[in-house]
Design a protein around this nucleic acid. Structure first.
Length: 851
RNA sequence: GCCUGGGUGGCGGAACGGGUAGACGCAAGGGACUUAAAAUCCCUCGGGGUUCGCCCCGUGCCGGUUCGAGUCCGGCCCCAGGCACCA
């Protein structure tokens, strides 16, 4: 039975409370250390945050998981990256919101229910319990009080309210339309959910079906969704490009072609108004309402009917669309080219899409390859009206259409104009003549959200034979998804057969009505969950404006590239709708976006079928969460794919052992010493160098995290520091001054490591004598004095080739450096007595002597 | 076909104002410690040559700019991802 997720989270993983004092064992024992700190963090409520207008906020969010059963390495990588950012920003003084929840509706729950005779709710909540335990064992800095599951009626009731508000504004509407149907999932898919003609989830070939469906009017926001991409400079370029392509704005003209013999004109959209004088026939989509009307009563009627029947939406699959050959049939009627007055035969053609533009295309065979092929096949006239600059094309000699821009010919007053200005001039001319005018088209279609499935949020609509359809009254929300259903086989939606659910009085007239049995696309839930985290328990409405306005937008969003158009486009749309409904004031939900790469094994995606799955639990058991985290951060920069490597994990583990051993070795030396905070001038060379390295490391790690999230190089820098410390152990005397420098080095090292390996860092921090959590400690700042070099190394080149290097005091002038460089034996050897023609000094790092 | 990324040692990856290519780590080889193994520590580790000082070649390919190019420009090749009858 479904339990409320909120009550379940309070039950923490059982950890024996062994100890709270420092565990300064000889050997690093990650399991003891990690269990201890996970419990302490929870008891001290370290990661619980509230809106606080006095403090700067930072909202870091990772895409929430679908509770499929167990966490996989891809999740661990995603959430580890987010955790490093969250902990880093906390140390930088930000009030950090870092929540986690569950994208809990979806078809796999129904499939599992069928396969294992479990209720989808039970399956889902059981999975959540397992995955929550796994996440907790990784030690992430989530404010677990904010956990939400989208299948909770307390979540989706607000979504239903938003639906109703959208319905009232015409942003949610129902229409009959050709839609994508996945025969395997037995449900409709949105355009974004069809990938190369196949279902995004199960890869089955998608067919087109004519159905009455609910849509969200995302096209009403097409212009803004496109324009605002320019306001997202911190999104990856390829995601922006993919969204631009998806929205697919094109500017052109709408043109009306009167019918010969009377009747309503045929409207077309074209981006090539400059080719209007070359339009010689007309092509209609098979679903075009005029197709059958025109043919009625002509000798062509029967043939057109057969053609339309054959090619209408039901019989076309998206996969097959690519292979079909272009064919068509004459309707028996002509239309008139409004500028030339020529009669153009009207065809029905199988390659014309009803969903784009007006479902009709003016055919210009000389300048469009599709039309050219069609004209060749049916012997239709070809008329050249655009010539390449300095050339004149002959229609008879064409072997392919000339699709580029050029210079207009045989185009009335517009002849001689270049294509681009001609398009504008012709559009204006059409508007003046009442024949059409400039127009904009989008490739983006409205978002079909009806799903003929059970495990989703019910659409809050009631049908009445007398009153039509009406939204469920707000006081009756939520429309709770009934749990007493029979899920027998994938087929008709279980809700559609559940009489107790369907029967409801009409809210308008009180007579028997019927509920909508479709549920919402699960992408609706994920379109606004990031806002609900700001007020997960708010019971008065969709969003609590106070905390939401404080926390929103998400400052850093992290997730997979696979949502480049799907989730990320829907969430942007929903943000704008919620803004227009008055809930929020932001225009865009995610200020920065990081798309992390996949986790591979032996170069291939991890999959049960390939037997190359690495289980996070096993890694935590064997090496600990800190080692697992460290490896994932170190093996590759976050946006790149990462190949899992067991030896590499051993290397990460070895490093943590080295840190542990170093700290343990130094403990007696730093006991009672305060961290060095002097000017640096009082230090002997060995200590000065150590301190120099410490501060250079601060600078490097800060820069790598702050500017680029390149944790791999940040970790490499700390590794260098650790190596330098081991070296210094040999050369540095064991005195009071050294103790202070050692403490500064060690404490700095732990602060820098903390976001990445928090348990180990906390443990050693405590062992150094600190009571407060390292999490409450400020991120270190480099001391400018410690960064100054007393000597510089200058690389010597002769004619651009490296011939040696020399040391010089940092105080030397540029002139001195170049003079000394020329005198160096390593240089003289290559000068062979010749006088340098030119000596170049680059950034006081390199001298190039040209002879 | 169009649009984005990306090609660097045996491997993962560094080099982010054009300025010592290969940081850091993994693997491999040699050595120390040990009865032995593991663990740990030290050395070597792009290719070729070497009088052991060094020298030549080398960042997908060809060309260019520059004192100097992995990095900039032009032209290709290959790989990955996205879109694909959108009028």
């Amino acid at each position: 039975m479904a339990r409320s997720p909120v009550s379940v989270i309070k039950i923490y993983v059982t950890i024996l409370r062994e100890e709270t004092g420092p565990i300064m064992a000889v050997r690093y024992e990650p399991r003891r250390v990690e269990a201890k700190w996970q419990q302490l963090w929870q008891e001290t409520r370290l990661f619980e945050v509230e809106a606080d207008p006095a403090r700067p906020k930072y909202y870091v969010l990772e895409m929430f998981p679908y509770p499929s059963g167990r966490i996989h390495m891809g999740h661990v990588r995603n959430y580890t990256i987010g955790d490093v950012v969250a902990r880093y920003k906390m140390m930088r003084g930000f009030n950090v919101l870092h929540p986690m929840g569950w994208d809990a509706f979806g078809l796999p729950a129904e499939n599992a229910a069928l396969a294992r005779r479990l209720h989808p709710a039970a399956w889902t909540y059981d999975n959540i319990a397992v995955m929550r335990r796994q996440l907790m064992a990784l030690g992430y800095s989530y404010d677990w009080r904010r956990e939400l599951a989208t299948c909770d009626p307390e979540y989706y009731r607000w979504e239903q309210l938003v639906f109703i508000e959208m319905f009232r504004r015409g942003l949610a509407y129902k229409k009959m339309a050709p839609v994508n149907w996945c025969p395997a999932c037995q449900t409709v898919l949105a355009n974004e959910q069809v990938e190369g003609g196949a279902c995004w989830r199960c890869d089955s070939e998608v067919v087109l079906k004519e159905l009455e469906q609910w849509f969200f009017k995302i096209t009403a926001y097409a212009d803004e969704l496109l324009a605002d991409l320019d306001r997202l400079p911190h999104w990856p370029e390829r995601v922006l490009t993919m969204q631009r392509n998806w929205i697919g704005r094109s500017e052109g003209a709408e043109i009306r072609f009167p019918l010969a013999g009377g009747g309503d004109p045929i409207t077309v959209f074209t981006t090539r108004a400059d080719t209007l004088w070359g339009a010689t026939f007309m092509s209609l989509a098979p679903e075009h309402p005029l197709a059958l009307d025109l043919a009625a009563g002509t000798p062509q009627e029967g043939e057109v009917r057969r053609f339309v029947e054959h090619w209408r939406a039901q019989n076309r699959s998206r996969g097959a669309l690519e292979e079909i050959t272009k064919e068509g049939v004459f309707t028996g009627r002509n239309c008139v080219n409004p500028v030339t007055g020529w009669e153009m035969p009207v065809y029905v053609a199988n390659f014309v899409l009803m969903e784009y533009g007006a479902g009709a295309v003016m055919a210009v065979p000389a300048h469009d390859q599709r039309d050219f092929e069609f004209a060749q096949k049916y012997g239709l006239p070809v008329k050249v009206v655009v010539n390449p600059p300095g050339e004149t094309l002959e229609a008879a000699g064409l072997t392919a259409a000339w699709e580029e821009d050029g210079v207009l010919a045989d185009s009335g007053d517009f002849s001689g104009l270049a294509s681009a200005p001609a398009r504008q001039a012709i559009a204006r001319h059409l508007a003046e003549q009442g024949l059409g005018g400039p127009a904009v088209q989008f490739r983006l279609r409205d978002w079909g959200i009806s799903r003929q499935r059970y495990w989703g949020a019910p659409i809050p609509i009631i049908y009445c034979d007398k009153c039509g359809l009406a939204p469920v009254p707000e006081r009756d929300l939520p429309v709770v998804l009934p749990l007493n259903v029979e899920i027998d086989a994938i087929g008709a939606s279980p809700l559609g057969k559940l009489e107790s659910f369907l029967h409801v009085p009409c809210p308008t007239c009180g007579r028997p009505g019927r509920r909508e049995a479709d549920t919402m696309d699960t992408f609706v839930e994920s379109s606004w969950y990031f806002l609900r985290y700001a007020c997960p328990d708010y019971r008065e409405g969709v969003l609590d404006r106070g905390p939401v306005n404080y926390w929103a937008p998400v400052d850093q969003y992290i997730g997979g590239i696979e949502h480049a158009v799907l989730h990320l486009l829907y969430a942007r749309f929903f943000t704008k709708v919620l803004r227009d409904l008055g809930y929020i004031t932001i225009d865009e939900p995610f200020t920065r976006l990081l798309t992390q790469g996949m986790v591979l094994k032996e170069g291939a995606k991890m999959a049960k079928s390939k037997g190359n799955v690495v289980d996070p639990d096993e890694m935590i058991e064997a090496f600990g969460s800190d080692t697992t985290r460290l490896f994932l951060l170190f093996a590759a920069p976050p946006e790149r794919d990462l190949d899992w490597n067991d030896q590499g994990v051993m290397g990460a583990h070895r490093f943590l052992h080295r840190v542990w051993t170093l700290a343990r070795t130094l403990l007696p030396r730093v006991k009672g010493a305060a961290a060095y905070a002097g000017p640096g001038t009082d230090l002997p060379p060995a200590l000065g160098e150590l301190r120099h390295k410490v501060h250079r490391t601060i600078q490097k790690v800060t820069d790598d995290i702050e500017a680029r999230f390149h944790f791999n190089t940040a970790i490499a820098a700390v590794m260098e520091l650790v190596n330098a410390c081991y070296q210094a152990l040999e050369s540095v005397p064991d005195d009071e001054l050294a103790g202070r420098v050692w403490r500064e080095a060690l404490e700095t090292m732990l602060k820098l490591l903390h976001p990445m390996v928090p348990h180990l860092a906390e443990e050693l921090w405590q062992a150094l004598g600190h009571d407060a959590s390292l999490q409450r400690t400020a991120w270190p700042a480099p001391d400018p004095a410690a960064l100054v070099e007393s000597t510089i190394t200058v690389v010597l080149q002769v004619n651009g080739r490296v011939r040696g290097e020399m040391a010089a005091p940092a105080s030397a002038t540029d002139e001195q450096i170049t003079a000394w460089a020329v005198e160096q034996p390593a240089v003289q050897k290559w000068l062979a007595g010749k006088t340098p023609k030119r000596v170049v000094l680059a950034r006081r790092k390199l001298v190039n002597i040209v002879v």
